[in-house]
């Protein structure tokens, strides 16, 4: 057997430039997930706030002199009304923002590549799935937080400023919890967003039902995040109160454990298995 002699192959130069590939992952988030998130949340907020703003204008036109005087003048009356509107909006809407954002950002993040076979070309390259998907998760997290900041700025320009560090902290931590659960589900099975919804519903129900039970079996609820208390976080942001840090640590820690577990699964579970 003779083999034609060609030029010697160069020594292996680089591993995959996964860090640079992050720009593509960011672009993918914006095009495929961020746009959808923005449209859904934009419509939802318009429907929630638009009508109430019209109502506010109507009330402003029909407010009595006594009401205005009691509030300390027309400006103060208007500010107080906007404050109340924004508080109600944040308390009711922030949970939806984070939940929908997490579902959109992490839906199929791993499972889609497995299901469609896209992983085959990606991971024939010198790239570790753990690094690739871990980076994708972090980029989606950061991009979602940036998206919420942009939406908050728009809200600020149209209604009243709401962008604050506590708001972003709450959004980032709550996103980490929901998206972490979904990321773990996506690394293991196809039905990731359904799994996340199932965990959310189950956790809310079981914590509400058995959270205060003295039974040792009831302690199993500690395996689930205390989702019956998410309103405490959103209310604190809405009212401008101090954030419940112990609760945020619990939610964030739960999400972080899920992310680490997902990376562990990605390290050891074969990619062709779905």
């Amino acid at each position: 057997m003779s083999i034609p002699v060609h030029e010697a192959l160069p020594a292996r130069r680089h591993r995959g430039l996964v860090g640079l590939y992050g720009l593509w992952q960011f672009r993918d988030y914006l095009m495929e997930r961020g746009a959808a998130t923005l449209i859904v949340l934009g419509l939802f907020s318009y429907l929630s706030v638009g009508e109430k703003l019209s109502e506010l204008h109507y009330r402003a036109e029909h407010a009595t002199a006594a009401q205005i005087a009691q509030a300390g003048g027309a400006e103060a009356w208007h500010t107080a009304q906007l404050q109340a509107l924004t508080s109600n909006f944040l308390a009711s809407f922030l949970g939806v923002v984070v939940f929908v954002g997490a579902v959109f950002a992490t839906q199929g993040i791993v499972a889609n590549d497995r299901k469609t076979g896209f992983y085959r070309f990606l991971f024939a390259k010198p790239v570790s799935p753990t690094r690739y998907y871990g980076q994708a998760f972090v980029i989606h997290w950061a991009a979602f937080t940036a998206l919420v900041s942009a939406m908050a700025l728009v809200y600020g320009a149209l209604v009243q400023p709401i962008l604050s560090v506590p708001l972003l902290m709450a959004v980032a931590v709550m996103f980490l919890m929901y998206a972490g659960i979904e990321f773990l589900a996506s690394s293991m099975a196809r039905w990731d967003w359904l799994s996340m919804v199932a965990v959310a519903v189950t956790a809310t129900y079981l914590w509400g039902r058995f959270g205060t039970s003295p039974s040792p079996v009831a302690r199993l609820v500690y395996l689930l995040p205390p989702l019956h208390r998410t309103a405490e976080v959103y209310s604190a942001v809405a009212q401008g109160d101090a954030l419940p840090w112990h609760l945020l640590a619990w939610f964030g820690g739960y999400g972080l454990v899920c992310v680490v577990a997902a990376l562990f699964v990605l390290r050891y579970r074969r990619l062709a298995i779905i």
Binding site: H14, G16, V18, Y21, W24, T116, F118, F121, P126, V127
Partner: peptide, 23 residues
């Protein structure tokens, strides 16, 4: 199996980055 929405040149650029081709 390549995502159908990718453009040909983008797909090759992405794979080249992951393959470790210097920028």
């Amino acid at each position: 199996n390549i995502p159908p929405a990718w453009r040909v040149c983008d797909a090759l650029e992405r794979y080249a980055l992951l393959a470790g081709v210097p920028q």
